[in-house]
Simulated scan of single mutants.
Amino acid sequence: MAFSLTRRTLFGTGAAGALAAPALLTDFASAQDATEPHGMTNGTTFKTLKLGAAKITVISDGTRMMGNPHEIYGLNQPADAVSKLLTDNFLPAGGFVNGFSPALVDTGNDVVLFDTGFGEAGREMGTGKLVDGLQAAGYTPDQVSVVVITHMHGDHIGGLMTAGKPTFSNARYVAGQVEYDFWKDEARVGTPAENGHKAVLEKVVPLAEKTTFIADGAEVVPGITALAAFGHSPGHMVFRLDSGNKALMLTADTANHYVLSLQRPDWEVRFDMDKVAAIATRRKVFDMIATDRLPFIGYHMPFPAVGFVERSDLGYRFVPATYQFDI
């Protein structure tokens, strides 16, 4: 299967517009599917696929049952419009399953982890399963050589530290400069973003000396390129993986529900900090993915979070991957 290798820079490096700061992200939607092959050990789930010479393992950090989709998605729409879209897609209108899926990319030279889940703070609510999933997939935390943080919401940075020490003891770190500067800034104190500020002080700042802070177009390791995709957070970034003759996008939280955020990309999402910028970003990222027929991994897509999109109606239709990576 040939994926387009058209390389492009999606966005500039300037900060997003005015921000509506949230509490720590804990709520996003996805549904699960049982695509094979995958492994399960003590409730942890992983999916491994090949892309060129790279081995990619998507790991479930856990799931949460959530209610009232309209309180998170389609804030600029009537509640019955959200309910109808869910019902039209064979989904219940009163609730959803929220999933969290970090990805590990083994290039042969580097073992690169994208995001770290909730960590120890999430275990009481059924998340924080990343390390167990890594081990089930045949990796240990000390094998991770690079940890990439797509943005600094709690479900992405919570697993950086365990019992006050780095979870990934041999890793160096990569994060966006714009994102770090926003969350570290003392100006967040006394605002709704204060909890996020405190989490960054606890989880990210202790690792700053080992962290490379990047901007749009930076190379993480050979074959992995960062692209600014601001809006969901001030410095949110997506990443392109090129290996052999194939390419894949890691879209992080650009879209957070495979129906509500993709079929209706212009619908506002509660935890998109700059909602106008987030909508523009969704369209730019997924227009490119649809045009180039690229596979993508979305942090909150239906597990194993891998699929494609095609243009449809007012937005995009999510097409889950099945055996494309096995042949």
Rank of each mutant, 00 (worst) to 15 (best):
M152H: 13
H153D: 15
H153G: 14
D155P: 09
D155F: 11
H156Q: 15
I157K: 07
G158D: 11
G159M: 00
G159N: 01
L160E: 04
T167P: 05
F168L: 02
A171P: 00
A175S: 12
A175L: 09
V178D: 06
V178R: 10
F182T: 06
W183F: 15
K184T: 12
K184N: 13
A187F: 12
V189L: 10
V189R: 11
V189I: 14
T191D: 02
T191S: 06
T191P: 01
P192N: 14
P192V: 11
E194T: 05
E194H: 08
N195A: 15
G196E: 11
H197L: 05
H197R: 03
A199Q: 12
A199H: 09
A199G: 11
A199Y: 11
L201C: 12
E202K: 15
K203I: 10
K203V: 10
K203F: 14
V204Q: 08
L207E: 04
A208W: 03
E209L: 11
K210N: 07
T212C: 04
A215K: 14
V220E: 08
G223T: 00
I224S: 05
I224V: 09
T225F: 13
T225V: 15
A226Q: 02
A228Y: 03
G231K: 05
G235T: 10
G235E: 07
